[in-house]
């Protein structure tokens, strides 16, 4: 029994690892086509988003408003291309829609919006609000006696917002244990490195002091991500926070080396081709095979 579970886990990890380069390519193609957007923070978040959707989320892509679904709230709304890549793969919308990102009339708004795209559980983009919304969803689900769980993906720069710490305080008070927060800790924001702009450390100590269950993981290691999500879901009586150390621009070396510059600038065609070639080479994907 135990070994079956371990085998299943390994199979899932292999699947997620196979999907990751394809999601990264989709993100880059989306942003190139849009000629605007946030590649660094989408590429740092994609492994987390993918793991949450494929491993944890109880949802129905063909019934996106199913009342008892688990919720996913992209509090760092600028990272939504990562979510769109996974949602498209899961069948929420046609793959062709990806190339309409940020264009007039597209359901794929520059920042996620509930009334533009079914399956988005909260409109976000003004940083620091998503955690409070997640708290409300968590309490509402509890009042409705639903067993559904809420996943909230946050950014490190966003953690500078005062409202985040208001929610940190109130979620401990109300013992909101059906919400798991995952921090995409990619260490950079628009004006510079997070530690220079406004350092958020010592982060684990802060959340523990506020009464949270805290774990720290490598946000690109699927085995660690899955284990942390399991542990977070098992925590009772307190909210759960996973600090996922990530790399801004992960998978594209020229972005990884210059993470601040690639926060909010989209790659042009040449950059995109170079980046995609690197991702495919690393993943051993033949260019012909990758054409879909």
């Amino acid at each position: 029994m135990g070994s079956d579970k371990a085998t299943d886990r390994e199979r899932l990890v292999a699947q997620l690892e196979a999907k990751a380069p394809r999601y990264r390519v989709d993100i880059l193609e989306m942003l190139c086509e849009a000629e605007s957007g946030h590649p660094g923070g989408s590429l740092s978040a994609i492994d987390l988003v993918s793991a949450i959707y494929h491993y944890k989320l109880r949802h129905r892509p063909d019934d996106p408003l199913w009342a008892d679904r688990d919720r996913f709230i992209m509090s760092k709304g600028h990272g939504v291309p990562a979510q769109y890549a996974v949602m498209s793969d899961l069948g929420y919308f046609e793959r062709d829609k990806l190339w309409t990102l940020r264009k007039l009339g597209s359901p794929l708004q520059g920042h996620p919006c509930t009334h533009w795209l079914a399956g988005i559980d909260a409109s976000t983009g003004s940083l620091g609000q998503g955690l409070s919304v997640a708290q409300g969803v968590g309490i509402g689900l509890r009042l409705s006696r639903s067993k559904a769980h809420v996943y909230c993906l946050m950014g490190d720069g966003e953690t500078q917002e005062g409202q985040v710490w208001e929610a940190a305080m109130s979620m401990a008070k109300y013992r909101v244990d059906n919400v798991t927060v995952i921090l995409d800790y990619n260490k950079a924001q628009i004006d510079g490195l997070t530690r220079d702009v406004m350092d958020i450390e010592p982060l684990a100590d802060k959340w523990r002091a506020f009464g949270w269950h805290v774990q720290t993981i490598d946000g690109h290691d699927y085995r660690q991500i899955l284990a942390a999500l399991d542990q977070a879901a098992a925590v009772q009586g307190q909210p759960s926070y996973i600090i996922a150390h990530t790399i801004k621009g992960k998978g594209v070396s020229f972005m990884e080396q210059n993470p601040v510059s690639w926060h909010g600038v989209s790659p042009n065609r040449e950059d995109t081709d170079r980046a995609i070639a690197e991702i495919r080479k690393r993943a051993g994907i033949d260019a012909k095979e990758a054409v879909r």
């Binding site: 998503g130 409070s132 919304v133 708290q135 409300g136 509402g140 208001e166 305080m169 109130s170």
Partner: peptide, 22 residues
């Protein structure tokens, strides 16, 4: 829900509650 002196958190939390049918 007594939210303390946290108006911003209170407002966003209410939006989350509403999304579950409240």
């Amino acid at each position: 829900f007594e939210m303390g002196i946290q108006e911003a958190n209170m407002i966003s939390t209410a939006a989350g509650l509403a999304s579950t049918g409240k």
